[in-house]
Structures are given as C-alpha cells and as structure tokens.
Write a protein that binds this DNA or RNA. Sequence first.
DNA 1: AAAAAACATTTGATCGATCAAATAAAATCA
DNA 2: TGATTTTATTTGATCGATCAAATGTTTTTT
Lengths: 353, 353
Amino acid sequence: MASMPTVTDVALAAGVSRQTVSNVMNSPGIVRADTRERVQAAIAQLGYRPHASARRLRTRRSSTIGIRLDPMIDGISGSVLDRFLHALTEQADKQGLRVLLFTATSPEDEITQLQRLNDGADVDGFVLTSTFAGDPRTKWLIENGISFVTFGRPWGTNDMNDPQHLWVDVDGWAGLHEATRAAQDGGARRIGYIGWPSPSGTGEDRRRGWRDAMLERGDVTEDDLALLEVVCEDGVAQGTAAMQELRRTAGTLDAVLCASDSLALGAMIANPERVPVTGYDNTPVAAAIGLSSVDQSVDEVAAGVLELLTGEFSGHVQGAPESDEPRHRMVKPRLVVREFAAIPMDVPGRATA
Amino acid sequence: MASMPTVTDVALAAGVSRQTVSNVMNSPGIVRADTRERVQAAIAQLGYRPHASARRLRTRRSSTIGIRLDPMIDGISGSVLDRFLHALTEQADKQGLRVLLFTATSPEDEITQLQRLNDGADVDGFVLTSTFAGDPRTKWLIENGISFVTFGRPWGTNDMNDPQHLWVDVDGWAGLHEATRAAQDGGARRIGYIGWPSPSGTGEDRRRGWRDAMLERGDVTEDDLALLEVVCEDGVAQGTAAMQELRRTAGTLDAVLCASDSLALGAMIANPERVPVTGYDNTPVAAAIGLSSVDQSVDEVAAGVLELLTGEFSGHVQGAPESDEPRHRMVKPRLVVREFAAIPMDVPGRATA
DNA sequence: AAAAAACATTTGATCGATCAAATAAAATCA
DNA sequence: TGATTTTATTTGATCGATCAAATGTTTTTT
C-alpha cells in the first residue's frame, strides 16, 4: 500500500497550489467554482484524506472533545451516561468532532488528566458529567480558561441564569410533574413517592415535581402528602424496603413514583397488588420489566452540549462577548408509559400445576 | 496564560539541545545520568508537556486506538461492553495510549469509519467487538494491513490456533463448567439450562460447558439431559417463559443455569420455589437482585487486547515474523456466587400485615 | 601515547497541513 | 484606456516534535 497522498500530491494532480487545495477543504467559498471542482475530483481520484495531526499542529486545535468514562458506580442508572456517551459520539461525528475517553480515580486525579489532555493539545474542550456542588473540576477549568460544558446544572450557589459556566440539564421537576399528572389523569388520587435523602439537588428537584403536581390538584392535604413519601438511598433492596414501608404508612395507594429505576425495580418486588410503579431514567431494566419511566432524552442533551461547546461562547463564559444567547439548555424529559402487566409475577399459590 | 513551553524552551533552560530533551523522554537510556536529571528538572520546572499532534506527525503513529461504541442493542448484556470499554481505557492510559470512540450504523458504514480514522492517522489500530462469522470488517482490515484485535474468537471457519487475526475471548465453556460443578458440589443433581438457539457460537460454547460437566458426573442420563434444557431467544420475558416450561418438563429441579443475566432475571420471576439460578455476565442487575453469575473478567480481556496490539505482532498476523508466541488469549471467567436470599420476593399470601 | 571504538550530544531536515503576506487575474471605476 | 478595487491563487514561513547523520567526548585497545 503506497503511502497516503498529501495536499501537495493533490495540488500537483489538479494543477494548483497546496494552499488552494487547503482552501477547497476549509473555505470553499473563496475558491472559484471550476477550480474547486477540479480539486475535488483530484481528491476523490487519489483518495486523499487530510492528516489529522498535521492539521492540528498548525491550527492549534484538535477537533476532539474529552470526556471521562465513569466507573459505573451504580450499574443500573449508569446506563444513562452510556447512552449519553453514545449520543454524543454520534452527533459529534457529524460535526467532524471526535470523542476521546479518559478515566480517573478521583476528582483530583481527574484534574491531572484534564491538564494532561489540554496541555498536550489532545482536546479542544471537555464535557463533564456527574458534577456536584463545589466541584473542584469546574473551578479549575474556569481558572485555566479551558472550554467545557457540564451535563448537570450547577446546584448550590449559582444563579441559574447567570452561571459561571455553560451547562445542559434535564428538567427533573417537569419529568415528575408529568408522570404525576399522567397518573392522576388515569384516575389515581393517592400517589406515593420514593426518593432520595437530602441534600441532593437532583433528588429535591424531582421530588418537587411530584409534590407540586399533587398540591395543584388538591386531592390530598399537605399532612397526607407526608405519609405518601418515603426517603432512602438508591438501590434495589432499598426500593423494596421503601415500598414495604409505604404500603404500611400510606393506606390506600393508587400509584408510586420513584426517583430512579433501581428504586422502581425494588418497589416492584414488594408490590403484590400491582400498583402502577414509575421509574426514572428509562433504563434497559425498566424496558425489560415493563416499567413506565421518565426518559432523559440524551440525544437532546448531547445536541445541547455540542451547541454550547462549539457555539457563540465556544465553551467559555468568562471573556465571552456580551450576548443574550442563553448559557444553558434545559431539556424536557419525556414519560415512557409501559403496560405494567408485561411482567408475569408468578407466585407459589398459582404456580404452574 | 502564557503559551505552553516547547522542547526548545526546555532545552534552553537545561542548557542542552532539543534532541537531548527528546531523548530524555523517548530513550532515557542513551542520555548520561546527570544530563538527564538536569533536563527532567527543567521539564518539571517549566511544566512542559509534549505536544501530542506534533509528535504524531513526525513519528507517524498516533498512540491511539479506535473502538466502535455499539448502540446498546441489548441493554442488559450491553453493560459487559461498557465495562470492557472502561477497563480498556484505564489500562491503555497506563501505557500512554488513548482510546478514540466512533459510531457506525452498519458493518459497511463501520468500514468507512475505519478507513477515515486510519487514513487520517487518527489511530494506530482498532479493537473490534461483537464480531460474527464472515465479518466483513475483519476481512477489510486484514486486506489493508491495519492493526487490530478482536474481542471475540473467530467462530466458524478458522482453526483456533492458526487464526487470520489476533483475538481475545472468554472461555464460556469453562464458565458454565465451573458453575455446574459449583452447583453439584452444593448437592444439586438435576441442574437445568436455559440457553440460546443455534446457530450461536457463544451459546453452543456455554451450553457444552454445562453438558460436559453433567455427563462427567453421571448423575443424569443423556435422555434426562434433554428434559433439563430449554432454548429461547435472549430476553427477560423469554427467560420467564423458559423457566415455566422447564418446571413443567424437568420434574425435580435443584438449580438452573442461564446463558445470560437477562434470562436469569426472567427465570427468577417464575421461581417461587427459590431454586438457585445462575446467570452470565455478572451485570449490575445480577448484583442488584442477588443472582450468582459468571463474570467475564473484562480487565483480563482488556489486558490481553493491549498485549496483542502492542506486542510482538503489533496487531498483525500477516507478515509477522515466525513466532511461537500465541496469537490469542483465552480468558477464564470467574464465578461470582451470591446469596440467593438477597431478593425479598414479596407475594400476596405473605404480604406485610 | 596514538588509534580505534564506544558513547554522548548537537545540527539540519522533515512530517503535512495552514497562516500571513505577496502576487496575479479579473472586475469596477474614473 | 489606464488607475483602482476586488477576487483568486501562490509562495515562504511555521506549528513542535523526531529522524538521520554529523560532531564532539570519553573510554578502550594496541
């Protein structure tokens, strides 16, 4: 296999100069139409492909974004990040961007990695996931003037409309609000909620979606609402325990909403009356079991992240021009309703004869 | 922020030439100890980081491996590939290799992507997953002399010991054999198996592990064995149906092994007698539910892939020197035994009072 | 002690592309 | 028509590192 042709080879074949070839690829507008066609023909004929590293060396940009691959802490919910990663890779590809992975063992280690990739001109910017209040990574990136966008709003100090950095997030409030409404429209009055303990920005956001929808409708009193809510850490076993408690405290239960699919799966297990359970994240498990779930629309999140990273702010807030362009994207999740009966709960009493 | 220092800056600071700095980084052995230390001190002091693209342009290698991110077809089992991806990224990092992602919509499209990344000198080689018999990708890569290793042995035509390409795989036979032995050692005699229909190299491999272990022990006859086996497509619902059938045909059942965690989860649902069920892949779901499962040791697979990719064959078989070095790695999975009782199967009859 | 060999370091060229500035060609104006 | 602007294309320099070969040092050999 002969070595790859270069711009010079193409230029020679098309009877033009190197730079014209370069222009055809980068600013086709300034090249006369007939010249352009001639060059494009030569490119096609020789099978020319630009050498990515050479271009990066000269332009000082890599057309690559870095993202940390999390060590699946919670395996079930972790799949949201995987889906996001897939969507991001796919859409980045369409814009000529590449996605480079890295791993880290701690936020501090992650900063070391960020620095390494940035200094080595390996990436133009980063996408941060699983951010938390007082995250040292965002602080470091801002201080060093590096482009980045987070998947997850800055919980805590910042005003949402004047953030220190660009972000995209999913509106958990709207998701739970919609799920509650859907249950109510289906005739449910007493709708329970299994959520996470404080402090959890995400958890509180989702919880309020349920709470607000319940109070708006006015089917239950505030006091009653307290009995319809159980708080526990995330996990299947925890969900089962929470469901058992809910059935004890709540009295009648027409439906149950959960802050995650893990909890929902757990709740399902202690659910002999087949009370409709709705989860969050629309993970494969929910699909397999036939649980309704709130889907995070990772495609829209990925699109938003790329827009902010390559758009007007190009990944920065500091030093960016005055602009009315919003500095974040709030993505509305969508409720996926499933037929609950999909899971044949076989029990001793009715075991196959 | 001042622009990054270059080799020349370091050379100036250390009072040596560019090349010596380069040598300190790439062949430290040929630099005298005291010079080396002086250079290293300058590197540390200036915070020098080599410019990855410049290096790649000159050396004509990218220190990057490409891997396609699959569009999670089967969400549950898909997590094995995610874990593999994580392990690969982590270990590649330690060797100074980066992992670049890409997506594709079909094997043909994937070939286009492979070509693009290879021609653009973006990657040195590829890791292929989810290979199948007659895979056009392996054919294309071999024809074009591009480095690659597959996760998955070449099912079908090739002799395992004289393959056309390098591969790493997990020994499904050994996994099921061990799982069967473990059940037998626990006193089980009649051990059922829920597997996949032919033709499936992987499925047949696992099935034989169970079959061989059963016959070796001689607790059941060949005829009996046929009654202990059910075949169905992968999926939770399918697993449930298969379990119901197994309970009908098998008579007594001391344990059930499944070809996947999806099937195992399904089997669990139709399992009022709490017959021990073992899955395959050790997915988060298995962990959450408390199922025993065969773990694919993705760390070892990742290590094997990198060894083959960077080792003696450097990702090629064709044109490689005669060598006794094995051209594949067969990784032994390990059985993860879990307490079955972890899942509180609440049923109407014994619902909380 | 001079010659040869081994080791250590430096210099100039190069990888493939794009930038910035210079030149050539075409279009517009006086 | 000749001067001026606009548009199209080319040339030389450069990004930051490593290669190949040359030069300078030290060690070994005879």
